[in-house]
Write a protein that binds this DNA or RNA. Structure first.
Lengths: 186, 186
DNA sequence: CTGTAATACTCACGCGGTGAGTAAGTGGAG
DNA sequence: CTCCACTTACTCACCGCGTGAGTATTACAG
């Protein structure tokens, strides 16, 4: 129906990652997000917002909810992944992000779930992202070189982006090393 | 009335920068934004969005519009800064941004207008921002050092932020040098 | 037996941003 | 001279998104 719905759902895919571990209800997911010292550092979601996102994911068919009655309490809604949701999550997990600005949240979320999944998944994510960044950096450099010196400002903007991208590439290498050597915990 | 209005207006302040040069109507501002190879690279605004932002700025008393009739054409709305708008813009222009994420748009916008204003304004902006970044970086380093190695992920997140911040600091120096030496144009 | 925390979820509202539309003058092709 | 396309200049209705606030039940401390 609405194309925008599916396409802008990119961050929401991360939520599927929780359900891949085991079906759970929204409240538990919220606990995991806010209490964990890990992802909670990066991504803060209000409860109501989380519920909204989840119902969107349900609308597009990535999750189904089973209403589990319990005594006279209001019933709990246990959510689980559909095959479509599984597939969407797997696609999301290994696809590199396109813009520098997507690192602070989205790429870190990918990394979080990739680490949780399997070392090889994480390595594959890092590889692909590395390539994407490398070619983005090259594009930026070409752009700056081929630019007539129109304005100091434009030049500084491009230099800013290059330097951010370069730092990201180095950090990606750090990640790869850190994950390759099983020196430590979790 | 609405506190949120004023506080979330941070990016909108940039628009005041156009009016500080000379009063103009919204359409002209839109031209400047989209056609200029400079700020247009960084900040893209739809026409309707721009009009919305401007009317918000009017609502809080930063600009006033003078309706200028012209023959039988629909009248133009010339906007100009109020003293409050002037003051707000000056405050905005020299205040450093607080988060790394605010660089891509907001800080670059500040820099654009600072360069246009006066070399000394730009230097002052760069100085203050440098200090803010330096202390942010220190906070990050302390945080990472004093963190029990709870998880690889958290560590990588902090390293990511540090590396981005470090790159920004170097870039700020580049900017300062570039603007100090009057090697080239505009 | 009162109050506060934890569990689990819902909803009405308001603002922001987009797409689309309006309306009048201008300049060149045929 | 007239039709069409472009430029100038601005408006509006819609709708999704996120927030604040609220609801309802159980558990447990004092």
């Amino acid at each position: 129906m609405n194309v925008g719905l599916v396409s802008s759902l990119t961050l929401e895919h991360a939520l599927l990652g929780f359900l891949r571990q085991h079906p759970m209800h929204a409240y538990e997911m919220h606990q995991l997000l806010t209490q964990s010292k890990a992802l909670g550092r990066v991504w803060y979601l209000k409860q109501s917002h989380l519920y909204a996102l989840l119902s969107r994911l349900e609308r597009v068919g990535y999750i189904v909810t089973a209403t589990e009655a319990q005594g006279n309490r209001p019933p709990r809604k246990i959510m689980s992944l559909t095959p479509a949701g599984q597939a969407a999550f797997d696609r999301w997990l290994t696809a590199p992000v396109e813009h520098g600005r997507d690192f602070r949240l989205e790429f870190l979320a990918k990394l979080y779930f990739a680490i949780g999944a399997d070392p090889s998944v994480a390595q594959s994510l890092l590889d692909r992202q590395r390539q994407a960044c490398q070619s983005a950096l090259t594009r930026l450099q070409v752009q700056r070189q081929s630019m007539e010196p129109e304005s100091t400002f434009s030049e500084l903007v491009l230099q800013f982006r290059e330097s951010q991208m370069t730092a990201i590439l180095e950090w990606l290498d750090t990640c790869a090393e850190r994950l390759a050597s099983p020196v430590s915990g979790k």
